[in-house]
Deep mutational scan, measured.
Amino acid sequence: MSGNGNAAATAEENSPKMRVIRVGTRKSQLARIQTDSVVATLKASYPGLQFEIIAMSTTGDKILDTALSKIGEKSLFTKELEHALEKNEVDLVVHSLKDLPTVLPPGFTIGAICKRENPHDAVVFHPKFVGKTLETLPEKSVVGTSSLRRAAQLQRKFPHLEFRSIRGNLNTRLRKLDEQQEFSAIILATAGLQRMGWHNRVGQILHPEECMYAVGQGALGVEVRAKDQDILDLVGVLHDPETLLRCIAERAFLRHLEGGCSVPVAVHTAMKDGQLYLTGGVWSLDGSDSIQETMQATIHVPAQHEDGPEDDPQLVGITARNIPRGPQLAAQNLGISLANLLLSKGAKNILDVARQLNDAH
C-alpha cells in the first residue's frame, strides 16, 4: 500500500501541473516587456503551470559599433537563445518575429505568432524639431536608422535628408537623439515604442507609400524545439490566425527572394473581405531603383483552434497545428507568387547589386 502511495506522490510531482516552463529572452527592456506579455497570456491559459524567465545577451546586443547589415552573420539576435533551447536550458524563446530568419536551424520551429501590433515605422524627432515631419525637416538634416530597408525607401522619398546608421537598443538610440546634436530624427518601429509606453515620442507614423515595413514587423514569434510536442501544444494558444497568415505570406515572399538583413526588402499586408493583399518591394541601397507589386488571394481566416493538420510540417519556419492547413498554404503560395513576379521584373539584379555594395563598404 505504502509503495503505491509513493508512486502516486511521484506521479503528482512529475505531472504537468508541477512543471516549471523556462522562457528565454534577450536582456533589453523591450525584450523583457514583450516576454512578460507572452508569459502573462500563458499564465492565464495555464494557471497550474509556473513560468521562469531567463534573460541573456546576444551577438546583436554586444556589437554596437557596426551596422547590422555589415556584421555579416545571420541570427544576430537569436543564436545564443537557440543555443540555450538546444541544450534544454529553456523550453521556449520569445523573439520579435522580424529577427527570426525565414529558414531556422534544424530542430527549431516557430510554435506561435502572437497578435500583431502596429507594424509601421515611426519617426521620433529631436526636441528642437518636435512638430515637424520628415518632409518639413531642414535641408541636409541627419536621420538615424539601423535599417537598409528604411534608408533606401526614405532616401527616395525625401532626397533633402541624409540617413546615417544608429545602433543600440531603444533606450540607447533615444538617448543619442536627445543628448547629442548629430541626429534631427530617428526611425523606429511603432510597436516597440508603444510597448515601452513611449507613445508621446511618436512624431509621425510612416504610411506604406512612404515606407513599407519589415517582414514580420510588429509581431512576436515564440520559438521552440520542433519535436517538443508538449510545448508546441502549450504555445499553440498564442497563435493569432490573421497575423499568422499575413506573416506566412510575408516570410514566403522574403524567403523566395532570398532577402535578408543586408538587402532592402519591404512588405505591406492587409486582410479585407476574405482577401489577403500582399505588397512587396525591393530597392537599391540608395533607393534610386525599385520594383513594387501587389497581389491578392482569397483566404478564409479560420477561428482559433479549428482542428489543424496533425502532421505539422513547417511552413517558412512556422508550425501551427491548430490552424487549418489550406489557408496557410494559400498564404505561402501568395508570397511565392509575388516573389516570382518581382524576380521576373529584375528584382534579383537589384538585390545582387545591393548585396555587393553593402559587402564592399
Rank of each mutant, 00 (worst) to 15 (best):
L97Y: 00
A191Y: 04
I166C: 13
H300L: 12
I53S: 08
T59M: 13
K87D: 13
I63C: 11
P106E: 14
S141E: 09
V103P: 10
F125W: 12
K79R: 11
S147Y: 04
S141P: 04
E162H: 06
F158P: 02
L68V: 11
E209D: 09
F51H: 09
N88M: 13
A297Y: 04
E73M: 08
Q314V: 11
L351V: 11
G203A: 12
V39P: 02
L137R: 05
A270Q: 13
K140R: 12
L81G: 08
G221S: 08
K128C: 09
A122M: 08
H126M: 08
G308Q: 15
V123D: 03
M295E: 07
A226W: 15
G131Q: 14
T66Q: 06
G260V: 07
L232T: 12
A226E: 15
Q217G: 01
L343Y: 01
C261V: 01
T294K: 03
R116C: 07
D233H: 13
N349R: 15
S37K: 13
R251P: 06
E117F: 12
F77A: 04
L97S: 06
L100D: 02
A151M: 04
V265G: 04
L154T: 08
K140I: 07
D289T: 14
T133K: 09
L238Q: 08
V142T: 10
G216W: 02
R195E: 04
S146N: 14
N169R: 11
D352R: 11
R167I: 09
K98N: 06
T109S: 10
I248N: 07
A191I: 00
M271G: 13
A249M: 03
V202M: 12
V143D: 04
E209A: 02
R167C: 05
P313R: 13
L232A: 08
L161R: 02
P105S: 09
Q314M: 00
Y46D: 11
K87L: 11
L68G: 06
Q180M: 10
D352P: 14
K348R: 15
R156K: 13
I166K: 04
Q155F: 11
T279Q: 08
G216V: 00
D65Q: 07
A55Q: 10
H207A: 14
G326W: 10
I166G: 04
F129M: 15
G107T: 02
V130L: 06
S141N: 14
F129S: 08
S37C: 11
V235R: 00
V123W: 01
L104Q: 08
A339I: 02
R150W: 03
V103Y: 00
L161S: 07
A67S: 05
N349E: 10
K348Q: 09
T319M: 01
S37T: 14
G280P: 01
K115W: 05
R355Q: 14
K227W: 07
A330C: 15
R251E: 04
K348I: 15
I323C: 11
L134P: 04
K43T: 13
T78H: 05
N169E: 06
P47F: 08
V124L: 09
P264S: 15
P106Q: 11
L174C: 12
E210N: 12
C247H: 01
L85I: 07
L334C: 14
T109W: 06
P309V: 15
L342D: 02
K62P: 03
T109N: 07
D286Y: 04
S344E: 14
L188Q: 06
T279P: 03
G281L: 08
L92C: 12
H83E: 13
Q217P: 08
E293T: 04
G111E: 03
V316S: 09
P313F: 02
L68C: 10
L220A: 14
L234W: 11
G107E: 10
G168I: 00
A297M: 01
I187E: 03
P105A: 11
Q153F: 00
D178F: 06
P159F: 07
K74L: 06
D311I: 04
E179W: 10
T102M: 08
A270L: 02
L278V: 05
T172F: 10
E242V: 14
L341G: 08
A303M: 03
A40N: 07
L338H: 00
L206T: 06
D230E: 11
Y213R: 00
E139T: 08
I53E: 08
A320I: 01
G197E: 05
V237L: 13
R225Y: 09
S147H: 00
M271W: 05
V123Q: 02
R255L: 00
D286E: 13
H207Y: 14
K157R: 10
L276R: 02
Y46C: 09
N169D: 06
H239E: 05
L238M: 15
D240R: 01
L76P: 10
M212N: 00
D178C: 14
I63G: 12
A297C: 15
C211T: 06
L49E: 00
Q304I: 03
V39S: 08
I318A: 00
S262A: 15
I323S: 10
V202G: 10
V142A: 12
T59I: 06
I63T: 00
Y46F: 12
D352E: 04
H120E: 14
L276E: 03
E117Q: 08
Y277S: 06
W198T: 06
V224L: 15
G218N: 00
I248T: 05
G335S: 02
L81I: 11
L188E: 02
P47M: 03
L285V: 10
A266G: 04
A354P: 15
K176H: 08
R116T: 04
